[in-house]
Amino acid sequence: MRQWIAFWNIVLKDMRAYYLKPPNVSWGLIFPLAWTAMLFIKSGQGLENILGLLPGVVCISILFGSTSMLAVTVTFEKKNRSFERLLLAPIPLSLLMLAKTGGAILFGTVNAFVPIVIAMFLADLSTISWNIAIPGIVLIATVSTFLGLFIAVSVSEVFEAQTFSNFFRFPMIFLCGLFIPIASLPVFLRPLSYMLPLTYGADILRGAIDGTNSMSLGLGFIVILSFCTILFYVSLRNINRKWIV
């Protein structure tokens, strides 16, 4: 019980101190809005194509919302040594890091619903399978956050966290099949696409939103869960190795 009090308060503290700050809220609103508008104009198609664009915009909103936020906040706390307070708390490291990532997962999940809410006014969303879309969104937010954690443990400065995040995010956007179908990519890039978690997340969302998934949904969930597990445990190992020296 005591550990869960700590867990919940770490999540709440991060939400209050970082994620619910006006700049982040506006970033969470403006960024998906800008992507939606940009892709909508670029497609040159009518409102009927909104559902086709939605999986990509949702994925990008989550990815950009959670990855850098987590990487930056953890690096910032490590830099000003307030992270030491958490390491000194009598809670297991794995629970502590789940709490630290909990806020970013929530933030990413909420970010995902910004373009969905916008789309509600422009298209009929009654065909979306929410029982697939919602777990898919949460999993994409989780894997993006754990990627942010992996980045945070690999850098020591806040600006490095931002740069390193982009090193992962931008290639991922163009290789995960959101805007360029994987089948249209050069042959040598295709294996790389299948090594990216967002490829499977985008496919799940396509399946949930307009039924155009190219892989089995079960496989998608298993692969993303595997990515989550690997990224989390590699990050924990790195924290143990690098931060508790």
Binding site: M1, R2, I5, A6, W8, N9, K13
Partner: peptide
């Protein structure tokens, strides 16, 4: 309050 919560205080 936050530091107290880390030790499980209600």
């Amino acid at each position: 309050c936050f530091c107290a919560s880390l030790y499980g205080m209600r």
